[in-house]
Design a protein around this nucleic acid. Structure first.
Lengths: 219, 219
DNA sequence: TAGGTCTAGATTGTCGACAATGATTCGAAT
DNA sequence: ATTCGAATCATTGTCGACAATCTAGACCTA
């Protein structure tokens, strides 16, 4: 997933942006720490111009905050910030589920079902938990299924990296994860029945549960 | 409203960004037209660096689209784009209304009521229609009332400029405008009663109506 | 000692020049 | 005449240097 974006990088600004974003999300650069332009330019062996470009893009993802004539800092994670983020997710992904119920092709829906089945098999055979990667895969399909370009960009390019940052830095995969599978199944059923109303409602509840689960760790 | 932001501008990049955004939203720069960096740098009498910075920020507002090694173009407006935009508005502003019902102080609510009253008076006395400015004022109060910083930034810094661009370039203020007042009133009532569910639902319907109204003109 | 001011250092903002990539035009060959 | 290719031109991407601003610490004063 990250690989695909790295390949899309044509300019060194792109590469630096992707690399820096990765480092921030994965916690290689601590949240709250200052991003010195000169320092980064030596570290990544590029000019300050491309660093500035990268930071500018990171700002539009809300991964860093910038003040004029002062500099940029990595956003710091807080319980309040998490709640705010999940309120937005609830709203936007709920709409995405509604639109997916309307706009996904039947082929896409069967593929989505196959995805869930393969996850279920994997859980049974390997005895492993329903991993975060599976959850992300699922949500991405729904989002793309909405066919709303702006919505897709908002979530995929913007919010999801911040979501992942919270997940990584709180250490994810709790016991609840298994129950998420059933919720996913119900959402797909609603989409399959073209029940927009229900699809939205179930997705919103799914995200609310997820929020409560992750919020407990932070508190 | 634009003035307040212009005053916040500390660096010439800020000023150029605000100016350029204004020119695009107001249609001084045609939608779909190319933004040549050298051309703009001479036009605004600044270096290409600040133009690039401004364009980069415009890109994060989704007012321009950029391709590597090719350049930036002002987004072109389309019926599909409008529908997508209003789906997002419906989702996010619905959530904003829900949160406003939860988080607005009683002082803020009374101020909101006063705002509506003053608009009503103005309509009666001057015989004027319920103008767009009034509508925007109202929606801003709700959005700010959500107290969700990310949501506020998403709407105020991002989406609303694109909304305004559509409004301006389609020539706004239709006959429906008057009925919007009643819808606003009902939303405030729901907020006053702390009825989150209803506030969200009414706001979503209000925006759907608004979409249908504006979409008719485009088709 | 607390507070304020001024200087020195470091950091960000802005600029012009060069390098690299994409577009266009002209020419040649079939 | 048309299509393919090469050279030229224009535009964007990258760089290092200079200017403007903020920050930290010393020094002075009450």
């Amino acid at each position: 997933m990250y690989d695909t974006q790295f390949k899309q990088a044509v300019t060194t600004s792109d590469k630096t942006f992707f690399q820096l974003r990765y480092d921030i999300v994965e916690g290689k650069v601590l949240s709250g720490s200052k991003l010195s332009e000169t320092e980064l330019s030596t570290k990544y062996s590029v000019s300050r111009a491309v660093i500035r470009e990268a930071i500018s893009r990171l700002e539009s993802c809300r991964l860093v905050e910038r003040k004029a004539n002062v500099g940029a800092r990595v956003v710091d994670l807080s319980p309040d910030g998490l709640v705010e983020l999940y309120q937005i997710r609830e709203s936007l992904e709920g709409m995405a589920a509604r639109l997916a119920a309307k706009n996904m092709t039947s082929e896409e829906i069967t593929e989505l079902n196959q995805l869930l089945e393969s996850h279920a098999d994997k859980v049974k055979k390997e005895g492993s938990y329903y991993q975060e990667a599976g959850d992300v895969d699922f949500h991405y399909r729904i989002i793309l299924g909405s066919k709303n370009k702006q919505l897709i960009s908002l979530l995929v390019d913007g919010i999801y990296h911040l979501v992942r940052m919270y997940r990584v830095q709180l250490g994810m995969s709790g016991p609840r994860i298994t129950t998420a599978f059933d919720e996913h199944k119900h959402i797909v059923n609603a989409i399959q029945n073209r029940d927009e109303e229900l699809a939205e409602m179930l997705m919103r509840r799914h995200i609310m549960y997820s929020k409560n689960n992750i919020a407990n760790k932070l508190a």
